[in-house]
Amino acid sequence: MSDQLTEQLKEIAKPVVEQEDMFLVDVEVKPASTKEIWILVDSESGGVNVDTCSRISRELAFLLEEENLINSAYRLNVSSPGLARPLSDSRQYLKNSGRRVKVKYKSGDDYLTVEGELTHVVNGTSFDVIADDGSHIKIGFSDVVETKVIPKI
């Protein structure tokens, strides 16, 4: 039921998020005494702010009540994915170009890891990482296992 609910939530949330000039990164349903629904959003043209999240949350709450998808108490949270979450949409790579990343990726039959600067993002296709040793590594999005932004300290 949870996978089906997650897919239904994505279908409802996507147009609401897009009307705010943002894109849907993920939807998570977390079981708890009060079920938690997390709608994770991002923007190509800027950051994610509280006012936009509030508008999305109000519209989604209205639609969820109208659709009557959830028949128990729940808490709706709309937020940016934050730095702790791996990048999951190619649009997030473009936004993070120039930042330091750690990428786990598949190369042939091997799994490799590289740390360095994210550069030259070709939306939907590939990106480059300038590794710490100065080498340039081209990685296709289809080969990515996980990419995390490394915050500056």
Rank of each mutant, 00 (worst) to 15 (best):
S2Y: 09
Q4D: 12
Q4T: 15
E7R: 15
I12P: 01
I12C: 05
K14L: 14
K14I: 12
K14N: 13
P15A: 04
V16Y: 08
V17E: 04
E18D: 11
Q19R: 10
Q19T: 11
D21I: 09
M22T: 13
F23V: 03
F23I: 09
V27H: 03
E28A: 08
E28G: 04
V29H: 02
P31A: 13
S33M: 07
E36I: 12
I37L: 00
W38R: 10
W38T: 05
W38Q: 11
L40F: 14
L40A: 09
V41C: 06
E44D: 14
E44A: 14
G47I: 04
V48H: 01
V48F: 04
N49C: 02
N49G: 10
D51S: 09
T52P: 00
R55S: 15
I56S: 06
R58A: 15
E59F: 04
A61I: 00
A61E: 13
A61H: 07
A61K: 03
F62E: 07
L63W: 07
E65H: 11
E67L: 01
N68G: 05
L69C: 01
S72H: 08
L76Q: 02
L76V: 08
N77L: 09
V78G: 01
S79L: 04
G82D: 01
A84Y: 10
P86N: 11
Y93W: 07
K95S: 06
K95V: 15
G98N: 12
G98Q: 06
R99H: 15
R100M: 11
R100E: 12
K102S: 13
V103R: 02
V103P: 05
K104A: 13
K106F: 14
S107C: 05
G108Q: 10
L112G: 00
T113V: 12
E115A: 04
E115V: 11
E117G: 00
E117M: 11
L118D: 00
H120W: 06
V121R: 06
N123V: 14
N123I: 09
T125C: 06
T125I: 14
F127A: 00
D128Y: 07
V129I: 10
S135K: 11
S135V: 04
H136T: 14
I137D: 11
I137S: 02
I139P: 06
G140D: 13
F141G: 05
S142R: 15
S142C: 03
V144F: 10
E146P: 00
E146L: 08
E146R: 13
K148C: 05
K148T: 13
I150K: 05
I153E: 07
